[in-house]
Simulated scan of single mutants.
Amino acid sequence: MRVIVVGAGIIGSAIALELRRRGAEVTLIEGQAEGGHTSAASAGMVNPFSLTPHETPALPFYLNSLQMYPEWAQQLQSLTHIDVEWRQGGCLRVALTPADANHLSENLEWIRRYEPNATWVEPPAALEREPTLSHEIAGAIYLPSEGWVNTERLMRALHCAVQLSGANLYTGTPALCLERLQNRVHGVRIAHGVIEGDAVVIAAGAWTSALLQPLGVQTPIEPVRGVILRLGDLPAPIKSILSSSMGYLVPRADGTVLMGATREQAGFDLRATAEGYAYLLQSLTRIAPALLHATVLGHVVGLRPDTPDHHPYLGAITGYEGLYLAAGHAYHGILMAPATARAVADLILDGKTTLPIEPFDPNRFTR
């Protein structure tokens, strides 16, 4: 089975590696000189509960992916000798106002059905655990199963593992169009010709729609600009993710912390603006004002590929043989990568998957 994967971000790279592990002949194509720019420009949260304000049909898939993470991260390290800094250090979902506290306490009821060890934390206990938090918080939920990875190291490990697996990796090679004979997609055209395959997976993030529009496939995806600050010289270390309605803080193994993120409708503009910085600093004032004295070490900018219902497209495209879609993961790509890779490999090699992908039907906006 020859499979072409378009897009070498975390989703495309994870799919390519899983397919290669299961014996497929894989070609991974990336339009930029170095793939995974958007994936690397992420805080790396693996947080199924604090990502969603309510119980969602996508949650079972999120939890499957979370369960895969420890082994997946260890396998990548064993293959590449790159530590992706997987840490299952938990998340403190902070209520900034009494209204937030009421909402979080209501959420705790359904969260405990999946995470029995989730607990309500009163403000004094939250401040004792995380001294940099604002003294104005109204409480928090502690979610012990959530964690994070270093996305820059994760992307390096994935690209290294893909190459070590024997897959063909082409960077700086834009996919110009899909090649088809009637309703069968059989290849991808690049500048120097056509790469032939038995199946094609489109995992091109915010650039996905442009490849599918000539086929009449409607998969609306909008790029959402996200700016994240990197802070150092902290007055006290942060032990876990600090998440709130205004933003989040994610610790790194080197003692720095990532503060994010803006959500800006700015097309494909990758600038970090003064307005974006102002929003992040305002959020920091509300969440952890002690960090206003930290050093700003830099920032990263990424384009999150978002869909109208904020769920990705995952599966086979109706009406075309050999065409699969894995795109539109928005803020969930890091979390969903291991399970997405397994599900897509299942569909291509076995024709079905036991993973709960129903909420992600790629044909849901064409009916």
Rank of each mutant, 00 (worst) to 15 (best):
L242A: 11
D83H: 01
E321R: 14
A316N: 00
T80L: 00
P356Q: 07
R153C: 06
A341L: 02
R113I: 11
Y277V: 14
T307L: 02
T97L: 02
G90L: 11
S244T: 11
A99P: 00
A95S: 07
G139A: 10
T97Y: 03
F268A: 09
L178D: 13
D233G: 11
E264A: 05
G255Y: 09
A294D: 10
E136I: 13
L164C: 09
Y170G: 12
P237N: 04
W148M: 08
T52R: 06
T208P: 14
A294N: 09
W120F: 01
Q282S: 15
D233I: 02
D83E: 02
V6K: 12
T219L: 15
S240F: 04
L234C: 07
L104S: 03
R367S: 13
W120S: 04
L169M: 05
S50D: 06
R153I: 05
G247D: 12
S134M: 05
L234M: 08
Y170E: 09
A345T: 12
P308D: 01
A99L: 04
N168T: 14
A203G: 07
G172E: 13
A73R: 05
L51F: 01
L17M: 07
G9R: 04
V149N: 07
G247V: 09
I195A: 14
G139M: 10
D100H: 09
P223A: 00
R342M: 07
M1C: 07
L51G: 08
Y114P: 13
E115R: 02
P53R: 00
R129G: 15
P220N: 06
A253P: 08
M246R: 15
W207T: 13
R364L: 10
L234Q: 08
V194H: 10
A288M: 12
W110R: 08
S78C: 03
P305Y: 01
L66T: 02
T366W: 08
Q213E: 15
E55D: 08
G9W: 02
D361A: 06
P235F: 01
M45L: 08
K352W: 08
G333S: 04
T307G: 03
P131C: 10
A14N: 03
L17P: 12
A58R: 12
L92E: 14
A203H: 05
G351P: 12
T27V: 12
A125Y: 14
V84Q: 11
A99G: 02
V194R: 10
E109V: 11
L92D: 14
P174W: 00
P144K: 10
T80H: 00
G23I: 06
A206L: 01
R93K: 12
A278V: 09
V84N: 11
S78E: 13
L59P: 11
R129Y: 14
P251T: 06
A161T: 05
N64P: 06
Y324G: 05
R263D: 11
Q282A: 15
L347S: 09
S78Y: 02
